[in-house]
Simulated assay, not measured.
Amino acid sequence: MSERTYKFDVKMTCGGCSGAITRALNKAKDNKEVSSFDVSLEKQEVVVKSGLGYEDILEKIKKTGKEVRSGVTVE
């Protein structure tokens, strides 16, 4: 399975918001589901590199309770 990069516009209002997403994606990284990610509170952006599909990554972010406003596959 080839890796893809996904970019999500996520509503984050504080460090707690970005921290929740970071913890969720760190867990996925530990499980080898995600190879790398970047959470930017300033840009309201989450970039994830993974072999999983778009919907799988979207679900992991949504489980944190944060609003995902949009998302695209970069590669």
Rank of each mutant, 00 (worst) to 15 (best):
D38A: 11
S36H: 11
E33F: 08
G16M: 06
N26V: 15
C17F: 05
G16I: 04
D30L: 14
N31L: 10
G16L: 05
V39L: 01
V34H: 00
A24G: 07
K29C: 06
M12D: 02
V39D: 05
I21P: 04
L41K: 09
S18Y: 06
S36E: 12
S40V: 09
I21D: 00
S40G: 09
I21Y: 03
T22K: 07
D38I: 09
A24Y: 01
F37H: 00
I21M: 07
G19W: 03
I21W: 02
C14F: 11
G16E: 06
K29M: 06
V34T: 02
G15H: 04
D30R: 13
M12Q: 04
F37A: 04
L25E: 03
G19Y: 03
G15V: 02
D30C: 11
G19L: 00
V39H: 00
A24P: 10
E33H: 07
G15Q: 05
C14R: 09
D38R: 10
E33S: 10
K27C: 12
V39I: 08
A20M: 12
S35W: 11
L25A: 01
G15A: 06
M12H: 02
C14A: 12
A20K: 08
R23F: 14
S35C: 12
S35T: 15
M12R: 01
